[in-house]
Write a protein that binds this DNA or RNA. Structure first.
Length: 373
DNA sequence: CACCCGTGGTC
DNA sequence: TGACCAAGGGT
């Protein structure tokens, strides 16, 4: 209390919006000034952006709106096609919820998205952040959209040093109090742009920040230490195996995974159970059928959210066994059309390289390139 | 609340 | 190289 502090002003939306008008990012889902909002596109982009970088989501957004321009079109698409189009983007429950949500909107709500936070919050795949973002951006509601960027900006501006996630409630209140009645959608996006481009986790560019004179953390020189987060858990190493089977007619075995859980509903290579560590020497017991399985030299590494996976790859050719339930045979030339998660593509590429040489692995190359920044 | 759920870029 | 983290939601 007797401790002397530098003066800090009050953060105001006007300063942030003025900055946004000059420095906002040009993104595929962002409208030109004056262009009417399309709730479908706003919703689609927000689902894709959950825990996903702008660069990764961009090409997927373009592909989805080109293929399914309306929520009705998306609702009528088979789930398998939606999952295939989503392949590689990760967190596949989002795609399942996306499809379910489209059907709710198209069938139960007459094609119109709810126009307030409470209504949006009831939709599958729409939580507090996404409901606020859609309400503000698509419906001009005075709603807060608190994502990781906003948590960081607000924690710093107000000097909130309570650890996450305990501080979430206070951050939400502070954010809500700042949302202007005018331009709430721009304010939401401005706050996220600020966090993404200036108020970054490390080495924030405070000299360029429209709120530098209002920021408690900056005044105290503790920007980089906020927000306070708990230490992350380490990711244990799990071993497993992938089984790549080919028949003499040029087809390969593809499995559709169970509808929920890790990689739920996705097509790909037959794998040992991912829920536990499987010794490569014991892996053949989990093969889709009894065959002369050949172990491929080398391994495939992949990192999931809560464990690391090291896969040994086994191959069998001229297979005559029947496909097991949940599997089918796909022409090798049709592999580019099979939407496989990245871990599956890695395993498939490893097998194809071993059996057919380095050119063959292009059959399972990632179809989308990263967006230009 | 704690845990589950993908992937790629960055420093 | 590896730890961090990205427009989080479901259970």
């Amino acid at each position: 209390m007797s401790q002397r502090r530098r003066e800090t002003k009050t953060p105001h939306s006007d300063a942030l919006l003025a900055w946004y008008d000059r420095h906002r990012r040009r993104l595929p889902w962002r409208l030109a000034p004056g262009e009417p909002a399309d709730p479908y596109r706003t919703w689609l982009s927000e689902i894709m952006l959950q825990q996903t970088t702008v660069a990764a989501a961009g090409p997927y957004f373009e592909a989805f709106v080109a293929r399914w321009p309306t929520v009705e079109a998306l609702a009528e698409a088979p789930l398998e096609e939606v999952l295939s189009e989503w392949a590689g983007l990760g967190y596949y429950a989002r795609a399942r919820n996306l499809h379910a949500c489209a059907q709710v909107v198209a069938t139960d709500l007459g094609g119109a998205f709810p126009d307030d936070e409470a209504g949006l919050l009831k939709l599958p795949g729409v939580g507090p952040y996404t409901a606020g973002a859609i309400a503000a951006i698509a419906f001009n509601r005075q709603a807060a959209a608190v994502d990781g960027n906003v948590e960081r900006v607000i924690a710093r501006v107000y000097g909130i040093d309570a650890p996450m996630p305990h501080a979430k409630a206070e951050i939400r209140l502070r954010t809500q109090a700042l949302v202007p009645a005018d331009r709430p959608g721009d304010f939401a996006q401005a706050l996220m742009d600020l966090g993404a481009t200036l108020c970054t986790p490390k080495r924030p560019a405070c000299a360029l920040c429209p709120w530098d004179d209002a920021c408690v953390a900056h005044a105290q020189g503790i920007e980089e230490s906020l927000p306070v987060k708990a230490a992350k858990k380490d990711r244990p190493l799990r071993r497993g195996a992938a089984f790549w089977a080919e028949r003499g007619n040029g087809t390969v075995l593809i499995e559709k995974r169970p509808p929920k859980g890790l990689l739920g509903g996705m097509d790909g290579v037959w794998l040992t159970p991912l829920g536990r560590d499987v010794d490569p020497a014991e892996a053949r017991a989990h093969a889709p059928f009894k065959e002369r399985w050949h172990r491929v030299a080398g391994e495939v590494e992949h990192v999931f959210t809560h464990f690391r996976l090291r896969l040994t790859v086994f191959t069998a050719t001229d297979v005559t066994s029947f496909a097991a339930p949940g599997t089918r045979w796909v022409a090798r030339s049709d592999l580019p059309g099979v939407g496989m998660p990245t871990v599956m593509r890695k395993a498939a590429a490893h097998a194809l390289r071993a059996l057919h040489g380095p050119d063959a692995e292009k059959l399972v190359a990632l179809r989308r390139r990263r967006a230009r920044t």
